[in-house]
C-alpha cells in the first residue's frame, strides 16, 4: 500500500473511532469495546474494497457486508455515516425511540445495512445464503462478514462454516474479531475457542491471521483472500477490545460500558494526540 493511502486510511479509522466514542458517550451507555476492535477492518473494507454506492445502497451487484456480531452496530453506523449513506447527525439518535440506528444492526432500518443481526451466529448463516444466491446470479461480487470471538461459541457458526466449505463459497471473506474477551470474562476462562486457526483450517477454509489493527496486514490478507478461488476465506484478526478508548481499552468491562459526554470528549482529545494507532 502506498504511504499516502495508508496515512489516509489511518486518519479515516481515527475519525470513525471518534464518531463511535462520541455517539455512545452521547447516549451514555453502549457496546464500545467490540465496536472499537473492528474499526480498522471496517475502514479498509469501506474505504478500499467494498463495491457499494451510498447513493444507491440497494444496487444488486454490490458487495454485501454482514456484521454478524450485530452488537457492534455503532461501529458500522459511524462508518456508513462517514461514507455518506445517511446524515452524520443520525449518529446522535442511537438507541432512541424511533431511531434508524438500533443497538443491533437491522436491514429494514438503516441504509447500507445488508442483514439484520444480533442473535449471535445467525448473520454468518445469512452470509452463506447471500453467497449462494449471488453465485447463482453469476454476480462477480463478494460477501464480507465479521463474526465475534465470543460469537464463535455458537454452534451455528460451525454449521455455517461447514456449509460454506461444502459449497466452495470462495466469494465469502470473513473476519474473526479476536479480542479474547466475552461478556463474562476472558474467552480462555469462559469458553475457549483455541486452537482457532486449526479449527478454521480443519473446516476447509483458507485461513490467515493478522493484527486486526494493522491496515497493511489487513490489506495484504484481503488481497490474498480475493485471489482464493476454491475456498471461503477466514481472516483471524488479533484485536484489542475497546482499542483507542483509554478508560475501556483492553478491559472486559468495555463490552457494554457506561460513560458520559465528558469522558467521551476527554478520550477523543487523548486519541487525537496520538500520532499512530
Amino acid at each position: 500500500m502506498e504511504a499516502q493511502t495508508l496515512l489516509k486510511l489511518k486518519n479515516q479509522a481515527k475519525e470513525i473511532r471518534k464518531l463511535i466514542i462520541s455517539m455512545i458517550g452521547n447516549l451514555g451507555v453502549g457496546h464500545i469495546g467490540g465496536s472499537l476492535s473492528i474499526v480498522e477492518i471496517l475502514t479498509i473494507l469501506y474505504y478500499k474494497y467494498l463495491n457499494v454506492d451510498p447513493k444507491n445502497p440497494d444496487k444488486m451487484d454490490r458487495d454485501r457486508f454482514v456484521l454478524s456480531k450485530g452488537h457492534a452496530g455503532p461501529a458500522l453506523y459511524a462508518t456508513l455515516a462517514s461514507k455518506g449513506f445517511f446524515p452524520i447527525e443520525w449518529l446522535n439518535t442511537l438507541n432512541q425511540g424511533g431511531t434508524r440506528l438500533p443497538s443491533h444492526c437491522d436491514r429494514t432500518k438503516t441504509p447500507g445495512v445488508d442483514m439484520t443481526a444480533g442473535s449471535l451466529g445467525q448473520g454468518f448463516s445469512a452470509a452463506v445464503g447471500m453467497a449462494l444466491g449471488c453465485r447463482l446470479d453469476k454476480l462477480n461480487n463478494h460477501i464480507y462478514c465479521i463474526i465475534g470471538d465470543g460469537e464463535s461459541n455458537e454452534g451455528q457458526i460451525w454449521e455455517a462454516a461447514m456449509a460454506a466449505s461444502q459449497f466452495k463459497l470462495s466469494n465469502i471473506i470473513a473476519f474473526t474479531d479476536y479480542n479474547k474477551m466475552q461478556i463474562d470474562g476472558y474467552l480462555h476462562v469462559i469458553m475457549n475457542i483455541e486452537d482457532i486457526t486449526s479449527k478454521w483450517l480443519s473446516f476447509g477454509w483458507y485461513v490467515q491471521r493478522v493484527n486486526g489493527h494493522d491496515l497493511e496486514q489487513l490489506d495484504f490478507a484481503i488481497n490474498r483472500a480475493l485471489n482464493e478461488k476454491c475456498r471461503p476465506s477466514m481472516i483471524i484478526c488479533d484485536t484489542i477490545k475497546g482499542k483507542g478508548f483509554y478508560p475501556g481499552e483492553g478491559k472486559v468491562e468495555s463490552h457494554n460500558m457506561t460513560f458520559d459526554k465528558n469522558m467521551a470528549a476527554e478520550a477523543i482529545e487523548k486519541l487525537e494526540k496520538e500520532n499512530d494507532l
Binding site: M115, A126, V128, G129, M130, G133, Q156, E159, A160, A163
Partner: peptide, 21 residues
C-alpha cells in the same frame, strides 16, 4: 441446497438467499 443435519443453519441460509432476492 442440502445443508445436512443443520436445521437452524438451513433457515439462516434461506434468509440470506432471500436477502439477495
Amino acid at each position: 441446497f442440502d445443508v445436512g443435519v443443520a436445521e437452524a443453519n438451513m433457515v439462516g441460509i434461506a434468509s440470506g438467499l432471500s436477502a439477495v432476492g
